[in-house]
Design a protein around this nucleic acid. Structure first.
Lengths: 234, 234
DNA sequence: CGGCAGTCAAGAGCACTGCTCTCGGAATGT
DNA sequence: ACATTCCGAGAGCAGTGCTCTTGACTGCCG
């Protein structure tokens, strides 16, 4: 990528990763809205204005951390998926489990990705789209596999009627991801993915009550299994 | 509630509701993290310090707005449910539709409830629990109804095994809500509810891509139907 | 009716934020 | 060796949440 690597560029690279580290640490302690570029400058031992040589703005720092988190999450999921067989259902369970584990280990980073978008800030899609869709793509692949290997029983069981624009949108994304599947399958995959995010977020944000949080993933696993029924019934 | 209603208390009440109005307006324009008590003071035509006679702190303002939003949402859902019959599936669809409509109409308020918890702030559960669980309760009731009226086909189809502590927790909540249902049904209800929140949030936060947002509720409806399959298959 | 307590708004001020501008010194490429 | 580019420091602006003090106004009780 950056091949030149003059000492200056190297030093820059180092402080950039240092900034991401400090940012993640800050995320852990004060959360996204509490992010302070001044505080990061202090952590680097420089004065507040100097940090702007590196990040430019608070939003830019946010983007940095978001991309970093997306990539970390996607890597965790893909690593887990590499260790599991081809059976669609178990792949979905593995994916869901990996997401849940990652989220529980780094709640604030999860929050950064799937929580409230920081107000007044829109992640530049050109930077975040690619890493952000890696997991979604996996879900679509799994759903397509499951639909392909299934006898027709699910199709009959009740496909909701999709509006034509929705079909068009889903088909467009399928083509973009280079996945062969019908729109109904894709729609269920999207639901399974959104549901996964919802279930994990609800747990993480404590919306199921404080005692549910204590149970940890015991309460998450059966929910992930239920969502798996949407695309890959046992 | 407040029966005395001396002119002084009345004036106070009025400015309190005025504060909530201004807060919601501010939510609409700048979002939760952009909430400024000074700005509200300006809206009231008073100086920044005077507002603290009424709200005490930024967190207190937040709590005020959260409770207000919870109650508004629950009212909207219950109103919609009053117009629909007893059939569980259609009740779930109505509930989901009402939530989606409410969320689309007031995205920032939805965000306040189901988005990232504002960092450094934990909603005092004694104030938010009651209004916050009204919708959840409805979902549990619907699921219990559906399970009661179903022939056993769903039970066989695949109940995930629940950890004993999870069963205990669910039973406790069922008792608290005064609902007769088994833990497996309750678990599916929780999944349906979390999934609902996830699907709506994903759409609202634009995590399905910008073009999906444009489609509005056309893309939400089939997903809500898919989630309905979890507790009340057609 | 008079005075006293409670209530409220105002003003000044503290510590913090993001961000900009300018200025010197140091490393870099020619 | 020179010019350019880069980087850190410092000062400063406008905004934030929040506190403390001061002065005015209200309602109640003797």
């Amino acid at each position: 990528m950056s091949a030149s690597s003059t000492p200056r560029a190297l030093a820059r690279e180092r402080t950039m990763t240092r900034i991401v580290e400090l940012g993640n640490a800050q995320l852990r302690t004060v959360g996204a809205a509490g992010l302070s570029v001044r505080e990061i400058a202090r952590g680097l031992g420089m004065v507040s204005s100097a940090i702007y040589r590196y990040v430019g703005s608070r939003d830019e720092l946010l983007t940095l951390l978001i991309v970093d988190a997306y990539e970390d999450l996607a890597a965790a999921v893909e690593e887990r998926l590499a260790d599991v067989g081809e059976e669609p259902r178990s792949r979905f369970l593995a994916l869901g489990g990996a997401m849940a584990d990652w989220a529980l280990a780094a709640p604030e980073r999860w929050t950064l990705l799937y929580g409230t978008p920081v107000p007044g800030y829109a992640a530049p899609s050109e930077a975040t789209n690619a890493p952000g869709t890696r997991v979604t793509r996996e879900v679509l692949v799994i759903a397509a596999d499951a639909a392909g290997s299934a006898d027709g029983r699910r199709q009959e069981s009740g496909s909701p009627t999709l509006a034509p624009e929705v079909v068009a949108l889903l088909d467009r994304h399928l083509a973009e991801f280079d996945i062969a599947a019908d729109a109904v399958t894709a729609a269920r995959a999207v639901t399974a993915w959104s549901g996964l995010v919802g279930v994990i977020s609800a747990h993480l944000f404590g919306q199921l009550g404080p005692d549910a949080v204590a149970l940890g993933e015991d309460i998450l696993r059966p929910q992930i299994e239920a969502l798996a029924d949407l695309i890959a019934p046992r």
